[in-house]
Write a protein that binds this DNA or RNA. Sequence first.
RNA 1: GCCGACGUAGCUCAGCGGUAGAGCAACUGAUUCGUAAUCAGUAGGUCCUCGGUUCAAAUCCGAGCGUCGGCACCA
Length: 650
Amino acid sequence: MPAIRLPDGSIRQFDAPVTGAALAAQVGPGLARAAVAMTLSGRLVDLATVIERDADVRFVTRDDPEALPLIRHDAAHVLAEAVQSLYPGTQVTIGPAIENGFYYDFAREPPFAPTDFPPIEAKMREIVAAKEPFTCEVWEREKAIEFFLAKGETYKAEILRDLPESETITLYRQGSWVDLCRGPHMRTTGDVGTAFKLMRTAGAYWRGDHRNKMLSRIYGTAWRNQKELDSYLAMLAEAERRDHRRLGREMDLFHLQDEAVGSVFWHPLGWRLYRTVESYLRRALDADGYQEVRTPQLVDRSLWEASGHWEKFGAHMFTAQVEDEHRTLALKPMNCPCHVQIFNQRVRSYRELPLRLAEFGSCHRYEPSGALHGIMRVRAFTQDDAHIFCTEDQIGAETVRFMALLSTVYRDLGFPEFAVKFADRPDMRAGSDETWDRAEAALREACAEAGVAYALNPGEGAFYGPKLEFVLKDAIGREWQCGTLQVDFVLPERLDAEYVAEDGRRRRPVMLHRAILGSFERFLGILIEQYAGRLPLWLAPLQVVVATIVSDADAYAAKVGRACEAAGLHVEVDTRNEKINAKVRDWSLRHVPVMLVAGRREAEAGTVAMRRLGAPEQEVLTISEAVARLAAEATPPDLRSKAAQEVACA
RNA sequence: GCCGACGUAGCUCAGCGGUAGAGCAACUGAUUCGUAAUCAGUAGGUCCUCGGUUCAAAUCCGAGCGUCGGCACCA
């Protein structure tokens, strides 16, 4: 007979098995009203679950953060019921809770459009108001298949057929509507509440496979209360203002146009930002034992065939024919094979390892049209690429070293936090299973040595080796792989790289492919969004605007501008015949971090009124004080300690 | 590539069969002003492209291109 321990440590003894709901009622009427689910020895289950034996039980109320996935999953069921009652003949497939909401994939021709949302949402609210109880039923597989087939639900039948033998098959009923579902659910559809909203439609392949039929997906968002929903929607609106495509235009950084799809036109200010990051990174690589190289843009197809890229990615490579030579050249889609060519130019000794070859390599890939996204997914981009040729037992030390470098760079550029994923062998791959076992084990051990915690990303490795992915998020929380570290035993073999070992025998080196930013284009897009355009002074391409209040101060403002320039600051002098209000507004909209205002008073006193972007207050300083302060702040982080030392010595 | 939405002035958008519109930006003039929009005037458009329907197309239809949101892809 169950003895049930509650979170406060108290133990309740029962003579017979008891449901969670009954237990809650016994604990107190308030809890019975608030509880929507419970954890039974750590597992989240329905309140209706019968507790048969001794267990730890904790109730989840609707206000708990843990209730959010339940609200969202229940909302997906309510959506499906609403859709099937309004559009008979629509088949249901799957409908999970996701971050911020839920979706449901339906099979229907024609697919749903946002114009269908008002009636669907209205129906959903009816279903919620009806407070239909969720009840769980255990079915036999064959019966369940028959049941769904009889309803014309072929997708559900297919899911059922593919469920492992061991799986208990459960159906959840809400009112007259039934769905195959693993659960858990809350008590009734009423627990979903009213803080939900259908957001958008999308096409999605059945089982995520492009060879399958495309289903019609409806995305929704759902929250515990209206306040949470409102703040989520406000966050999305705010994120729109941070969009790098919008900021790129507002700050005059870059543009894209139809004649060069997927290629960036960098404007002067954007290119300055690019160069600031590039210079910073080049200093970091120079200091960390890398040797920078430069390799060709156009390379004969035979090299790509040898590396295996032609077979796997040939269709996504830009090629060029040379008329009087019988050759096909490809614009390089990546740099690895070229770096191996440099390695292979002479006999290498083990003494040279690890050999780190770096390149800011300009690459072209014919990306599928639907993949393009602003400057974050483009067809022409520049990787901050490097390949480390080393021995198998140097992998750990190189990983430790790389993690230190990457962490420093990310921190300096404003990303103290980042996610790490471990992507292991994909279905389509080069190299034997034994090779993959070794490569994956080596990378796992290297992670342990470097103290890297990661999430698994199964089957997502490169075709030649497992990889770590360093993931950053954009303004609305979409994840982008930026940095990477890949362990490769395959390409050295295919491209016949070797070195002479201590014992005089020839050996294959291991190749570590690694990038920190990934591509400048993507990283700068994320950087712009991360800072919402308000870049720290050292990164801002236009750092200071000197603005006059009256034209009598024009000559003085020019002098202030020259002082800034002399200190290496990127400055512009605004002597337009506009009110200071208008100038402040104009430059604020362009996210210029500092304004130095010069009116009659400042011109007479030899001072400037310094104003930070977005801050209402000002500080009056002498020219030299203002410039010295700004110049110090505009020093890149890696040069700061050095600059401080020089000051100390002087 | 697939599903859907969208494509009108530099930007944001209105117009949805009958001679292309607004606000902001730009340009010109006046104004010399104290920290997020001074006033007035001027100029600016193969209405994405091609084809079709029609007396007449920005508007209706078709195809293409591009962008956006997803899916798939991402060396």
